[in-house]
Simulated assay, not measured.
Amino acid sequence: MTKKFTIAEIQNQSAFEQKYRYTEKIGDYAEGKIRQRKYVVENLCTDFSDKKATTLALRILNCTGRHPCNNPFCPKCRHAQQELFAQSMIENFGNVDADKLRFLTILHEVHYNSADINLTLIKKLKKKLDNDLDKLQLFADENIRLLGAYEIHAIAADEKLSDRKVNTLSALGYDKDKKSPSFLLHFHAVICMPKFKNEKYDIEGELRKIYQNSYQVDFTKLRDDKSHTDNLHDIATYMLKFRLQHSVSVASDDNSKQFTRTQYSTLYSPIIAKSVVMAVESCNGFQGLKTRRYT
């Protein structure tokens, strides 16, 4: 039987020894994955009196193929869930013409207490979206279908934001004068654009009426420089990325500058990283944050 590690062992091991315990225990020989798991566990263990955090750290550390931890911040479990999610995405939208699909983003709320982002809130937002789409479905000739996931993005207290981003987030609860980290809850999905009985209706316009703040809703066409399957796969894995890094959007390298890509930079500080990991855990991880609508 494989030995399980304890909190005492985490406290007593050096970083060098711990690195190789991670390698030996999990079987992740890629340096990046070792560093990711080490970073998560160490940030969860900044306060050993926090039993919820240290219990989660041990669950991640003791993850095995037979007994996976199923935590989004475990690289091995995240990769497995990303591939399953991508498979579901391709199965449900692989036979839909790319022109009928959009990558949907909805910005929901900015919170200063990460504990406010929990499963109760996610269920409330899911129900609202379902109810809104049910109303629109009455006027549509085709089923409104989507597959997506909620995500938490942290904003550091001293992070430099563009004027447009400040204006957008201010309407959702962000205060540029508040010198503390904040957490943006948002939603990504692939959505099938249905035809409506009345031409004055379209799904994009109707959702913009519901989420009325500037840049709160975005509909992006799928890239035309990739195969349909690759597009769906990459979007699905992106939705379940669960990164603990600050990011900026930069223009793509293509001549038309039609697309932007996300560039990741510095890691979250320990307190921010721990807050995000614990908030995702309180949302019930993968299962709580994913949502789908096929009929």
Rank of each mutant, 00 (worst) to 15 (best):
Y294V: 08
L222D: 06
I271D: 13
K128T: 04
T295L: 05
T237V: 15
L172G: 09
Q81A: 06
K52C: 03
Y294S: 07
A236F: 11
A251Q: 14
A156I: 00
R78W: 04
G173A: 05
G65V: 08
T6D: 04
K241P: 01
P181Q: 02
L240A: 06
L232R: 12
C77N: 11
T168E: 14
I155R: 06
L133N: 01
L232Y: 11
L84Y: 00
L289V: 04
R145V: 01
S180F: 01
N167S: 13
G285H: 06
S227C: 02
H188I: 10
F16Y: 12
E42T: 15
N12W: 06
S265A: 07
L146A: 05
H246V: 01
L244M: 13
N12P: 02
E109N: 13
F85S: 02
V277M: 02
V217C: 08
F5K: 13
K160D: 10
N95C: 07
S14A: 07
P72A: 04
D230R: 14
D224I: 07
Y174P: 07
L121W: 09
Y39V: 00
T23V: 13
Y112E: 02
F93N: 02
T2H: 10
M239I: 06
Q11M: 12
S256Y: 09
S88I: 00
M278T: 03
L44F: 07
I152G: 08
T260H: 07
E9L: 03
T237F: 04
Q212A: 14
Y174A: 03
L240M: 13
T64V: 08
T220L: 05
L84N: 10
Q216H: 12
A189C: 09
S275G: 11
G148N: 04
L84F: 00
K226P: 01
Y201V: 09
L207T: 04
L104K: 04
S162I: 02
Y150E: 02
